[in-house]
């Protein structure tokens, strides 16, 4: 049976400092559509670099990333793919401080040709979905870390992505808020069929994912047995 792949990467290499540091040393990875994947490994092993490469946030020195059936090549291609297919959640919320919560979600819909009124409605619906509707019109400075991260999750879903990439999304949250965010992400993964990839140091969190991709010295491989979802 042929498995549909959300992401397929081959021979990903990325060096820094004129080749002195090899953050990615030829990574191959196939991510099945709808899977949940934890990217694990020690600090400096290349986890975040891999995630950034898979999202086109960082050009690779060599190799190729295929998203679905297409291969984005230029920065403009990647921007369009991120807007239309890839949601991103970072350790830091990276919200724009002068925009309200709902506006922070709306700006992700720029360039989608969705009329402003529908953008606003969709943003409010998403905030509702992540339990953030109550502070839709407040700016990030007046919100807790957990609340801000929920808005960041809502923003990542603005354009109905098929892939959600999260880089230590609970790294700056207390355990209660961290659990809330994780439940939210896995619920979205379950209900929306999102392909979920999470960079994490947390073995408990990794264990909640169906697949674990372990990085070490810039190389990676799937480990363990696939968990039934």
């Amino acid at each position: 049976m042929t498995e549909t792949l959300a992401i397929r990467a081959r021979g990903l290499e990325r060096t820094f400092r004129r080749g002195a540091v090899r953050a990615l040393a030829g990574v191959d990875i196939d991510v099945p559509a709808g899977a949940s994947v934890a990217i694990t490994g020690p600090s400096g092993s290349g986890k975040t670099t891999l995630l950034h490469a898979l999202a086109g946030l960082l050009p690779v020195t060599a190799g190729e990333v295929r998203i679905g059936q297409e291969v984005p090549r230029t920065p403009a291609d990647w921007a369009r793919f991120r807007r239309d297919h890839i949601g991103l959640v970072f350790q830091d919320d990276w919200l724009l401080r002068r925009l309200s919560a709902v506006e922070n979600v709306e700006i992700a819909m720029q360039g989608t040709h969705l009329p402003p009124r529908e953008q606003r409605q969709r943003a409010l619906d998403l905030l509702d979905r992540v339990n953030a509707r109550a502070f839709a019109h407040r700016r990030p400075a007046g919100l807790s870390g957990g609340e801000r991260q929920r808005i960041a999750v809502a923003r990542s879903l603005a354009n109905r992505p098929s892939i959600l990439l999260a880089d230590e999304p609970t790294g700056e949250l207390d355990s209660f808020n961290a659990e809330q965010i994780l439940r939210l992400l896995f619920a979205l993964h379950g209900t929306e069929g999102l392909t979920l990839m999470i960079v994490t140091h947390d073995t408990a969190l990794a264990a909640r994912c169906a697949l674990q991709f372990r990085m070490h010295d810039g190389r990676g491989r799937f480990s363990g047995t696939e968990k039934t979802e």
């Binding site: 999202a55 921007a79 369009r80 239309d84 991103l88 700006i107 992700a108 720029q110 360039g111 354009n159």
Partner: peptide, 16 residues
């Protein structure tokens, strides 16, 4: 730069 990077990360085209 930070704001610009996040706009790019969420899919804003460079010209935008």
């Amino acid at each position: 730069r930070g704001e610009i990077a996040i706009l790019s990360a969420i899919g804003w085209a460079r010209w935008r």
